[in-house]
Nucleic acid binder design. Structure first.
Lengths: 208, 208, 208, 208
DNA sequence: GATGAATGAGTCTTCATTCAT
DNA sequence: CATGAATGAAGACTCATTCAT
C-alpha cells in the first residue's frame, strides 16, 4: 500500500512539474496578464480544474514559476562555480553568468524584467515571500564572506545587494525596452569597474 | 476672437489639469488596474467621455500621470539646488531630495515603485518614450559635468545612470513591500559611500 | 465512457437549442441591435458566458438564428408538398406556404424583412454563406426540374430565382412597413399571374 | 432687406447642399452605422452642431440622402428619355440606365443595396415616407400608361412594381455580396425576357 | 483525484446630441 | 445663425474559478 502511495506521490509530483513547466512556457511567451489558465492547462495536458488542485490561484502559480526559475538559475550558477575563485570573483561570475543566460534567452529577460512587475501584490508580511529572496540571500552571503575574507572593505551588505539586483533589473529592463541593442557583457564590465573602484579620482588622474 | 480663443485654451488647460490631478489621486489609491475611468471622471467633475478628449485611452492617461509626477519632481529638485554645490553634491542631493519626498508621500512611493510597472507596454521604438527618460537625462548630464569638472573619474555615464536609477527603484520597491521599515535616508548614506569609494580595501584597512 | 459522452452531447445539444430559441425570441421582439446578449442568456437560463461556448459572437448567433428559421421553413414546406403536384405547382405552393406562415407570424415577417438586413457583413467570399443560399438552392432546383419536365419554357434560372426571392422580400418589407394592410395571398395570386403569363397582350385582348 | 434675406436663404441652401453632399460621400464610403456625424460635419466644413440646424437627426439625414440620390437618379433618367419611345421601352430603359449607373458607381450599389436596409425604422404611418416612394410612383405611372396605351396587358400595377424594385434590389444585393461578378446588363436582358413573355411555353417549344 | 462545462462579474470606449458662448 | 466642447448612456465579451460528475 505504501508502495502504491509512493508511486502516486511520484505521479503527483510529475504532474506538478508538468503544470509548472507549462506555466513557464505560457507565461514567458504571453506574459502574466494575457496568459490564460486554460492555455497552461492544455499545454500541461491536464484539465483546467486540475491546476487548482496544485496551486490555489493564478497568482500563486506565477509566484511558483518565479521561484522555480530563480532556483534553477541559482543552482546552475552554483554548479559552475570554480571553488578556487575568491568570493569576489564568484560575485562577478554571477553577473557574467546571467548576462550569458539572458543573452541566450531573451524571452526570459522580458519575463524577468517586465512580467515580474505584474505580480499581484500578496500580503507581504513575510520577507521570505519577496520574489528575489533567494537571490538576495545568495548574494548577501557571498558579500559577507568577501568582507570576512578581507577581499573587500566593510560595506553595508543589504544596500549593496540592492545596488546589484536593482542595477541588474534596470539594465535588463532597458535592454528589453530598447530591443536588445547593446551587449549585456560589455555593460557588465563597466559595472564591475564602477563598483570596485568607485567614483573617486584615481591617483594617476589626480596627477593630471 | 483671439481673446476668446485664449480664454478657452486656458479653460481647456485647466480641465486637463483637473483630469490629471484626479487621475493621480485615483491611480495612487486604487492602482492602475482597479482604477476606473469613470471614477477619475467623477473625481475631476467631468463626463466620462470628456477624458477621451484629452487622452486617447486609459494607458496614455497613466503615462501622462507619470510624466507629470516625474517632471514635477525634477522641477522641484532643480529649484532647490544650491548653485554653489559641485555636480557631485547635486547628485547626492538628488537622492536625499527623493528620500525626503517619498518618506513624506509613501503613497507616491507605492505608485512609483509598483504602479509604474503595470504600465501597458506601448511600442517602445522611441527612447524618449522611456518613462524615466527625463530622469535619465538629468542625471546623465550631471554626471558628464562632474567628469568634465574633474570631480569624479571617467566612468561610463549610461551604466552609472542605470546603477543609480535601478538602485533607487529597487530600494523603493523593497521599502514599499516591507511596509516602510528602515529609513530611506540611512540607506542613502550607505549607498553614496559605496558608490564613491567602491569596494576596494582602503589603504588603512589594508594595513590592518 | 461513451455513454456518458453521448448523454453530455445530448445535453449540450439541448442547451444549444435553448440558446437558439431564446435568441429567436429576443431578436424577434427587440431587433438585432437592441437585443442584448444578456437578455438572450437569461431567457435561455444560462450564464452570459455560456453563449460564447456555442457561438463565437452576437453576429454569428444571429446568422445561426437565420439559418435555423430558414431551414425550419424549408423543411416545413417540403413536408407538406404533395408529390403528385407538378414542379410548377410546388413552386406556387412555396409562396402560398410563406404567405400563410407570415400572415400567422407577423413578428417573423418583420424579422425576415427588416432584421435580416441588419446582419453585420461577414466576409462574403463563400457563396454558401449567402443567407438565403438554401432558399436559392431549393427554388433553383424546382425551376430546373420544371424546365426539364417541359412545364415552363427555358428561362435563366438564377435570374428567375432572383425575381422570386427579391419580390418576396420586397412585398414582405412593404407589408411590414405598411402595417400588414393588404393580404399576402391576394398579392400572391397576382404575382403568379404576371410571372406565368408575362406582360404580353394575350390574343383576346389584342383583338379588342 | 428682402435682398439680404434672399441672399441668406441662398446661402443656407448652399450649406444644406454641402451637408447633404458630405453625407452622401461619408455614408457611401463608411456605411450608415460607421459614418460619424462629426465626419460629415468636417467634410462639409461646418460645425458638428450645424448639421442639426438642417436635419433633426442622423437618421433623417440618411433619409434625405436617399431621397436626394433617388431624385437625382430619377431626374437623370427622365432627362435621357427619348419621347419617341413607348412606355414599355422607357421602362426597359429604366433598368438599363440603372445597370449603367451602378456598374460605374459600385459604391452606390453597395449603398443602395446594403445601407438602405440599415435605415432606422421611423413611424411608417405615411406611405410617402417609404424610401422608394418616388421610384414606386415613377414606375407605377409608366406601367399604368403602358396599360392604357395597350402596350401591355392589364396587370396589377402595385404588384408589378414590387416585382421590379424587389428584383432590382435583390440582384443588386447579390451583385455586391458576390463582389461584382457577372454583368448587370446581361442580367437585365434575361429579366426583361421573363417579364415580358412569362414562363409559359411558347408555341414553338410546345410543338417540340 | 481529475475533469471541463458553466458561470457571471466587471469596464473601457464611442458618438449622437446638446447648449453655452 | 454657427460652433464644437462636453456629455453619459449603453453593452459585448473574457476568463479565473467552481463543482457536479
Amino acid at each position: 500500500m505504501s508502495g502504491a502511495t509512493k508511486m502516486m506521490q511520484r505521479k503527483k509530483e510529475k504532474k506538478r512539474k508538468a503544470i509548472l513547466d507549462a506555466a513557464i512556457t505560457v507565461f514567458s511567451s504571453h506574459g502574466y496578464r494575457k496568459a490564460r489558465v486554460a492555455d497552461i492547462a492544455s499545454q500541461a495536458k491536464v484539465g483546467d480544474g486540475t491546476i487548482y488542485l496544485y496551486y490555489p490561484d493564478k497568482a500563486r502559480l506565477m509566484m511558483a514559476v518565479f521561484r522555480e526559475l530563480i532556483d534553477t538559475q541559482l543552482n546552475a550558477w552554483k554548479e559552475q562555480i570554480d571553488p578556487q575563485q575568491s568570493n569576489l570573483e564568484q560575485l562577478q561570475q554571477f553577473f557574467y553568468f546571467h548576462a550569458d543566460f539572458f543573452t541566450k534567452n531573451p524571452n526570459f529577460a522580458r519575463f524577468y524584467a517586465i512580467e515580474m512587475r505584474q505580480l499581484p501584490q500578496l500580503q507581504q508580511t513575510d520577507h521570505s515571500r519577496w520574489p528575489l529572496y533567494n537571490y538576495h540571500e545568495a548574494i548577501s552571503s557571498l558579500i559577507r564572506n568577501a568582507i570576512s575574507a578581507g577581499e573587500i572593505r566593510k560595506i553595508d551588505t543589504d544596500v549593496f545587494v540592492s545596488m546589484l539586483l536593482g542595477t541588474m533589473e534596470y539594465v535588463l529592463t532597458e535592454w528589453v525596452y530598447h530591443n536588445y541593442e547593446k551587449s549585456l557583457h560589455s555593460i557588465n564590465a563597466k559595472l564591475i569597474d564602477i563598483l570596485h573602484n568607485g567614483l573617486k579620482l584615481v591617483d594617476k588622474e589626480r596627477l593630471l
